[in-house]
Design a protein around this nucleic acid. Structure first.
Lengths: 164, 164
DNA sequence: ATAGCTGCAAAGTCTTTGCATGTGT
DNA sequence: ACACATGCAAAGACTTTGCAGCTAT
């Protein structure tokens, strides 16, 4: 669980917003701050809890609305949803404040998603474009397996599926 | 829209099922047949409609139950959900009867998902395992861009987001 | 005969939305 | 001031589930 730095790098440029007739409100600014300050690929629910620590009156609806907003502006990425198991319709979206193109590793035991710094191979896109006739702009590699931690506690699956 | 062959290759081996005390019922057999006969990465709803053409009494619940079952048995794969836009909570799961490891191309204009035959690079898994300390078993590459068809009708986004 | 399945409908989870009120600019 | 945001609660979309009756084995 990381500390939230007082202020992240670029943040929402009020200039950019104004140009579109949009506002930089408290909830919006804070949400972005929170999502930029973690690498756990949080769910809306997780972000909601975090945001409420500092702005207790914020509603879940506002978090969703702003997430949708940030995703549409390309300021935040939404991950290709976790596949598989579920109770109810349980596969909440996960968001990522790191918009640089990068790859992911998902642990099938504890469910954690980790960023990988493996450099992106642009030439692969060009090769596939040539081969398929599609205009391929980028790709994303998802690695799967058992993370180092879960590898240690062999056997029993961790219950850590990161709530909180 | 492809025709459904009368009978697909391996299908559900009744032998395997029996060993687990499971049954090969009409809906189950047909569902697998349908999902094996298409490459559109259908949603549960799509499969439901298809199955009902031949077994009109089948319920959506049964389709879901069997999909979950087939996924758990590893007979069918569930795709990492389409990310992004939505109305309601609209991002239904997509399933894939092709269980061989392969990659996907998703068209950002029409939403279609196409299988790619790009050979899988196992050595990448070994390299990443060495680099990260995680026990990586496989990876999946998702390519994004504009498909050949949408490239032609430049501009206006297709409404084809494959229903039916 | 009987455990596993199914159909049906109700419940559950995650996400969006309508509306009255609040608030950046 | 006033258009955009918010809070709240209700509605929506997708998926699972409880139960009584059905059916492969």
């Amino acid at each position: 669980m990381r500390m939230i730095p007082k202020s992240s790098p670029p943040l929402l440029d009020p200039e950019v917003l104004r140009r579109r007739g949009l506002r930089l409100t408290g909830p919006r600014r804070l949400l972005l701050e929170v999502i930029r300050s973690t690498d756990v690929h949080p769910t809306a629910e997780w972000l909601y809890r975090r945001v409420r620590r500092r702005l207790p009156r914020v509603s879940l609806g506002t978090v969703y609305r702003n997430l949708r907003f940030l995703v549409e502006e390309g300021i935040v990425k939404e991950l290709p949803g976790p596949t598989g198991r579920s109770t109810g319709a349980s596969r909440p979206s996960r968001f990522d404040g790191n918009t640089s193109v990068h790859h992911h590793f998902t642990c099938s035991a504890c469910g954690r998603i980790q960023d990988l710094s493996e450099p992106v191979d642009r030439s692969l896109d060009r090769r596939m474009t040539a081969r398929t006739g599609h205009d391929i702009s980028h790709h994303r590699i998802e690695f799967y397996g058992r993370c180092a931690a879960c590898r240690v506690r062999r056997g029993r699956r961790s219950r850590a599926r990161n709530k909180r």
